[in-house]
Design a protein around this nucleic acid. Structure first.
Lengths: 342, 342
DNA sequence: TTGTACGCGTTATCAG
DNA sequence: CTGATAACGCGTACAA
């Protein structure tokens, strides 16, 4: 395997100096068109390829961007990555993926590692219970862009791309009200987590705005699992005054509820309406398709990537971007009494 | 922001030379324990971090591994990535993700790019119609490990980690036969693609081994979509002698078929059995859970990563590994007449 | 056991 | 317009 050709090789071939070659290749204006052409030609001929590691060392820029998230094989995250990659790759950046498994310690380690690897930026959805922000401030201290998506923390100097979870929840609840539901329950996950808090708030606000009493008994916290959804639905139906609809902050919770309810003979959507959240693929595969809130994950990824690129352009000026994407309610059978389902 | 500390800084602080520091940090045996300790201490004190870009330039090793696949947000692929990341990250490698969108040209560009970035290895699932192997041979020519997963090509010097698609299909078909089905149809996708060819072969062989005539009319090629599954099922049922079971090479095809069949009043599994392939999440979320073949995607990723690591250890010796993973048949309601579903 | 000197491939600065 | 030289930070023959 022949050695790789460097700018020295092509300098030697042309009896000029490496500096000139470098300039020619970088299209430096103060270089004669003739030599420029000459250099380009022999570069082509010798099959020259810029050594990006050398460039990286020299410039301190690795042309790599770190993407940090809890788990890759979750629908939201894999779609976000897709968006990021599609936006960044054409711009010459490579995307490095790391999983935190929702552990704060691992998250901190990963960020250390990415900083060591001198990534040019970090795009992150923080671990579920990350409270300590030291490792995140580290990033900004080194003057490299930090962009949150979906799950964010408020850190000065950082940017974020999130979904308007409040609005998504509000619209879902409003929709249920419009279907004639009056006793609307809510499945949350963990209200200490920002996004779930907002979904709860949106739900509550919609009730209030429609003159419906908020009932704490109708709010149940559960993991995003079918079984949990079933149990929660069972609990609800055991109430003296059971609900006639559920807005679930997770699609799996919604699915579990639907399965339980149908199991005890309740007709959906005639007797009971259900709306989930996330637009997981399975929601449209069921025979009884499930209404849900789409999070525009690919767009989220693309937007995060664009924010990063923007920061790279504007040099030292650290802009703080707060992008909030619009959710879109997908009305399907599980909540369609008026027959205008997709 | 203070400059980063280098080995020179810590050398100066100790009145020794940078070379000694380097050796101490790398635990070189011919260095005194005293200075070693001293160096380590001041390194700690000055908050020294090895500059990996410099190391990369020096060694030619970037400590990055490229993962190339059609689309990240597909269940199989995102799970494989998860496995790769979990195996490689602890070993100090970063994982770079690139999507080909199943385009051969894009695949070639990406590989060029990864080679330019001097990745230490490439793990790839090739684009659907990649026939030209020049860009792949490039990789091996540069002496960097090339590992295929799922969709592979036969290239000398490369390794591969695949599923035993033949066996998966065979077992699925055998299972259908054991359920009492005798006229078993098959949904394929594109038999010019290796994995689908093997699934077809496994299906056919199972028929033959059980003394069942193979009927070309029972084999339909379709895209992995619900609608296509419905249409294909319709076609099948219009035959003079319609089948009583389908083994589909895709879960979505199976789902479409199920929806169509139930729509026309056919009971599943009593009248008709269906088995899919891939173990997509939705298959276990349906009320009528769908039998399918699990591809062990996380294990596939981990195995591919291990093969890479193995190659890195054994230096120049290019080992060709052909790992074949065992599929596992998930028997669920859509094909369970004997009530032993999960 | 440690120091010297060099190279990895580029770009930037300063001359000319 | 172009050449010479230093620097990015590290590891490693070769010397001592």
């Amino acid at each position: 395997m022949s050695k790789k050709t460097t700018i020295y090789d092509i300098a030697k071939a042309l009896n000029i100096t490496a500096a000139t070659v470098s300039r020619a290749l970088n299209n430096n204006p103060r270089i004669s068109e003739d030599t420029k052409k000459l250099v380009l030609e022999t570069a082509e001929k010798l099959n020259y390829k810029q050594n990006r590691l050398a460039l990286a060392l020299k410039s301190g820029k690795s042309k790599n961007v770190g993407v940090v998230l809890p788990l890759i094989n979750r629908n939201l995250f894999s779609n976000v990555i897709r968006g990021i990659e599609e936006e960044l790759n054409p711009m010459g950046y490579n995307v490095i993926i790391c999983q935190t498994h929702d552990e704060e310690k691992k998250e901190a380690d990963i960020i250390q590692n990415l900083l060591d690897a001198q990534v040019d930026g970090i795009i992150i959805s923080i671990a579920r219970y990350t409270k300590n922000t030291k490792h995140l401030e580290q990033i900004l201290k080194k003057n490299i862009p930090l962009i949150f998506f979906d799950r964010k923390l408020e850190i000065k100097g950082s940017s974020s791309v999130t979904l308007d979870d409040f609005r998504g929840a509000y619209e879902a609840t409003q929709h249920l009200i419009e279907q004639g539901c009056t006793r609307i329950a809510h499945f949350t996950v963990d209200r200490s987590v920002d996004i779930y808090k907002k979904r709860f708030d949106g739900y509550k606000q919609a009730l209030i705005n429609n003159g419906i009493d908020f009932n704490e008994d109708y709010v149940i916290a559960l993991e995003s699992k079918i079984e949990s959804g079933k149990e929660a639905a069972k609990k609800l139906m055991a109430l003296k005054n059971p609900p006639d609809a559920i807005f679930s902050a997770s699609d799996l919770g919604a699915l579990g509820a639907i399965q339980y309810l149908r199991g005890i003979g309740i007709r959906i959507p005639q007797d009971f309406c259900v709306v989930g959240f996330s637009n997981e693929p399975f929601t449209q595969f069921m025979e009884l398709t499930i209404s849900t809130v789409d999070q525009a994950p690919i767009l989220m990824g693309k937007t995060a990537a664009k924010v990063f690129l923007e920061q790279m352009k504007s040099e030292k000026v650290t802009i703080e971007r707060r992008m909030v994407l619009s959710p879109s309610l997908k009305i399907r059978k599980s909540s369609s009494r008026t027959n205008h389902a997709e």
